[in-house]
Design a protein around this nucleic acid. Structure first.
Lengths: 187, 187
DNA sequence: CTCCCTTTTTGACATATGTCAAATGATGTT
DNA sequence: AACATCATTTGACATATGTCAAAAAGGGAG
């Protein structure tokens, strides 16, 4: 829990009562490698802070799995679309390594937002950050060739390359595994 | 201004004092077709609500313009990255048609957030919405061929096709103008 | 209407990437 | 060590898309 509290304090500090309220709303959750946090068709009712491990979000396209995000330590994990909109989610979220996470339900979070303006600000600032990160990723891939997208990944997220299997990374980059393999072999 | 107030009331209703505070912070802005709202390298200090007209955001890549978003009526316009992070923006924002907009400065908005939890909530809910829309666009383009991206655009944003010149749309879809032309000619 | 300029389309060709199949390499189990 | 299983690489080929140049189409000014 310390890592979560430390993490959020970097973005929007909370007063003691808000921290306490947050603390009591969080539940610890463990996930073994290969386990699912949620699957296609369910409404994602929790958002989790990832303290240890990594996960991927993927969906099925014509019988093939397309990984479209990865989460490493100190990030929030959920199907944002489903969590925010309360609609069934399109993706599956699976642990790529054993994970330790702290979760809060949608209902509890809304209640914290009502009780504490500080927590609502934290929520705003966090989603702003995630918006910027998504935009950055989008821009790095838009109108770029496979080679360049791979280079960008190496530069900006080398840890993903070290911890996530290649077959997942290929679809993350929007290319086939064979193309990724050839790019890598050409140094 | 009515269209803005009506728009936001759909997402997060405000009490009368908050509406009044918001109202006095907004300034009307006109832009003629071809004018720039902001250019590369400046810090985007305002966010605008687009009442009438349309705009595009684009950046220069190897001497070519790459349009990477369009905004139509009833949307908020700024370089979100720059507005949120306070860093110089990478993109140029240009009016594709004559525009009428309502703007608020970053400083004024932060002050409204401090004064009114209702406005802070509105801010959170809005950026959540924009996050979802960006994710949706990302997913619709990820691992998809040119043809499919074009079809998705026709299905989900037909108005863009009617109002934005094709040369801008091509780079928006991440393809060349020639490829777009050929896709269109094959019905 | 005609001219000029910009936008869009078309053609010929080069290159990048996908597809399918097979080979190689890695990992864990007995 | 030998095997089974899964992950990655390689090869041959098909297809999609980019590039460059030219032609055609469209739109505004006189």
């Amino acid at each position: 829990m310390q890592s979560l509290l430390h993490h959020i304090s970097q973005y929007s500090p909370l007063d003691a009562p808000s921290i306490e309220a947050l603390r009591t709303s969080l539940q610890k959750k463990h996930l073994a490698k290969g386990d699912f946090l949620t699957t296609e068709g369910k409404i994602c009712d929790h958002v989790y802070f990832l303290e240890k491990g990594c996960l991927r979000g993927y969906y099925n396209l014509d019988g093939k799995e397309v990984s479209y995000w990865f989460a490493l330590e100190n990030n929030f994990v959920t199907s944002f679309y489903s969590f925010i909109s309360r609609h069934p989610c399109v993706e599956n979220i699976q642990a790529v390594e054993d994970c330790v996470m702290w979760g809060i339900s949608h209902k509890q979070l809304q209640s914290l937002y009502d009780k504490s303006p500080g927590i609502e600000r934290l929520g705003r600032v966090m989603i702003e950050r995630y918006y910027m990160m998504l935009e950055e990723r989008f821009a790095r891939n838009h109108f770029k060739e496979a080679r360049e997208r791979y280079d960008n990944l190496m530069t900006h997220s080398p840890e993903i390359l070290q911890r996530i299997p290649l077959r997942y990374i290929a679809s993350y980059l929007g290319i086939t595994q064979e193309t990724l393999s050839r790019i890598r072999s050409k140094g």
